[in-house]
Design a protein around this nucleic acid. Structure first.
Lengths: 229, 229
DNA sequence: GGACAATTCTTTACGTCATAAGGGTATCAG
DNA sequence: CTGATACCCTTATGACGTAAAGAATTGTCC
């Protein structure tokens, strides 16, 4: 809470040993663990290890693991641009925003595993939101519609990132393995699910195509909403 | 895997004590635990307890917790309709599909916490997908576009459900508490994030409005795609 | 300089978790 | 009846988050 919005305040001089760590250092180390080893590997002990300390030492700085995760989440989002150039129109700006966010999630797939049920969002998260709302406000849509579109865009990009990150959509090898598993487990699959079979991606389909197509549909919907306004 | 697609096969007679449990009974108990106590409470021990057995007894039937969760996931989806009436057109059918799925997630919020990175999906999951693809195929869209729309719809409904389930969007009380927290943590918030402030929901805004608006935008986008075809 | 209080860390401990593995008992087939 | 198999319980292990006690370090005040 206070840690999330407090920023790097200069520590006032107090009795006791000089601190060997700081919140920032701990958060950075935790992000590194999550980035390199995944969320499942993130433990207080693991982070402590990376800093040459015990896991318990971290509790001097952060009240608990949940709070550490909140801090990590917001800190990682600082990577993203806060503003977008709408000179070429809102559509390319939104597409740019979505592309940045997708690639961000693919660099930090652990982000997708952090619960949205946090007590409060942090400054960087709000900055990302601010950038998108600023673009959409320029379409002339009212706050209610903007909210709907914002939710849609976030959900979409998160979903697309999740698909890529978790199912290895970019990996034809893995996809083939999955199809094989399915064949073995479910003989007669094609007859049972003819529609799904029809919609199956081809083996050589470019990786990001579903994202591109989905975004196109979504932006067309936004355009229709703008016209209705 | 085999358990997922095997169904309730009549147990062949084998030496050894008569089984006191079955996969189905275990999965049902596990779903009950998740429904009533949340995903965090789901442990082999907890499920075993509910069945008057130890947690270890479950391993006779399922290879591990991950597999149990896969089974739960697919089993829960059996609740949903597999087919939709497109007599009134594809739009109401999709809206009906989305509404069913949203309400389903709200009844079983733990579903949203299950990783999509599973080795293979089960029969009920495919049935839900089959129903949606069948509707969308009726629009005349090709398989590639249908895939994009399908992804979008799933992401959207999941995201909307997550927002409701995790942030208590239906709960004005909780929302006010969050605003208060934000005020305290971030003085000058309004000046720093003017766009976000502009887009803030009113205190008395109906709960499901963002979902309705988002779906409308999305369906307009689908309509545009259909026209392009 | 010493006493006191506060602080930074380590260590020990606890309860919880998933699951490996051994052992006792029940059942079936020959 | 014997041998093999299966259903469970029990014991154990390693991992987790975190409570709490203790040792060492530092700052302030007299």
């Amino acid at each position: 809470m206070a840690l999330l919005w407090g920023g790097g305040e200069p520590g006032e001089v107090r009795p006791g040993p000089k601190p060997g760590l700081s919140v920032d250092v701990i958060v950075e180390a935790a992000i590194e663990v999550a980035d390199t080893e995944g969320m499942a590997a993130l433990s207080m002990r693991r982070v402590g290890e990376r800093l040459g300390r015990t896991g318990m030492a971290l509790y001097t700085y952060v009240p608990g693991k949940a709070e550490l995760i909140d801090l990590m989440y917001d800190r990682a989002l600082a990577e993203l641009p806060a503003e977008y150039d709408v000179g070429a129109g809102w559509r390319p700006a939104v597409a740019s925003w979505a592309g940045h966010l997708l690639r961000f999630y693919l660099r930090h797939p652990w982000m997708l595993q952090v619960s949205q049920a946090r007590p409060v969002a942090g400054p960087n998260e709000f900055a990302v939101l601010e950038g998108l709302v600023a673009i959409l406000r320029g379409t002339g849509l009212g706050p209610r519609r903007v909210r709907g579109v914002v939710a849609l865009l976030f959900d979409f990009v998160r979903g697309a990132a999740r698909t890529c990150a978790e199912t290895g959509a970019a990996d034809g090898e893995r996809r083939r393995a999955r199809s094989l598993l399915l064949e073995q487990a479910a003989p007669g699959f094609t007859a049972r699910f003819p529609m799904v079979t029809w919609a199956e991606p081809a083996a050589d389909e470019p990786a990001g195509e579903t994202f591109t197509l989905g975004l196109h549909v979504l932006l067309d919907g936004v355009e229709a909403a703008v016209r209705e306004t």
